[in-house]
Design a protein around this nucleic acid. Sequence first.
DNA 1: AATATTTCTGCAACTCAGTTGCAAAGTTTA
DNA 2: TAAACTTTGCAACTGAGTTGCAGAAATATT
Lengths: 119, 119
Amino acid sequence: MRIIVLQYLMEQIKAVSLRSTEDAMEMSDKSTIYRTLKTFEKNKLVHTIDDGTKQLKYALCLESCKCEAIDLHYHFHCSSCQSTYCLTNHNIPKIDLPKNFQMHQANMVIKGLCAECHK
Amino acid sequence: MRIIVLQYLMEQIKAVSLRSTEDAMEMSDKSTIYRTLKTFEKNKLVHTIDDGTKQLKYALCLESCKCEAIDLHYHFHCSSCQSTYCLTNHNIPKIDLPKNFQMHQANMVIKGLCAECHK
DNA sequence: AATATTTCTGCAACTCAGTTGCAAAGTTTA
DNA sequence: TAAACTTTGCAACTGAGTTGCAGAAATATT
């Protein structure tokens, strides 16, 4: 199962939801896929993106990713086609936080129209 | 009702959830407060923040806010106390998107420990 | 002031993503 | 092969958000 899900993830250029993965699998249960994705997340193969749709999205991490602050990047969510993309080409800048605040993670989602929908 | 909810919002330095607002009101129904907050949002008095907890957070906009790209700011969510703060002192930088992608909105959440919890 | 019209409120019911317990099925290990 | 462990599918549950509806309240109209 893990191999099948991993393969599916590798084929995608967009982040996937539990739902769409489920639909793509046909022959497997929601909870199995759910647990598979959570396992991947725990082992830092994928990261999750909360893009404001109610469905959490999952995307493969880059080879080098340790899921630390330095690995964080922006994401883009298209309001029209609902696709979510990783913008891995630039990391997020250092943001100065209030005194004694400490950053560990981030969830950065830009919303708008993707190239397909913006015509 | 709107006045009471607005007052509550003005007292908070943190973003509030539907739930916490509800609890603070005692004498009013979930759906009323829900609709009140949605009305505020529609009229650009508040903006919402999806901080990765399952509860959407609401925070008052600044006086000048038109809820456009220029008004966007980062948010901070404390993983320990679950508080969410607006970091209104700096806006988000311009991010270069893939060709033909267009930004309209953004939901930016930094996660970590706030000053209280980081001791 | 009395009535009509519109808006607001509370209740109950519903949706839907995510999550979990459990037993059966499948794997690995000794 | 048997014991120990892992994975899977099912069903049931959780919890935030959302909606329809009827009565209450406010506002407008005559």
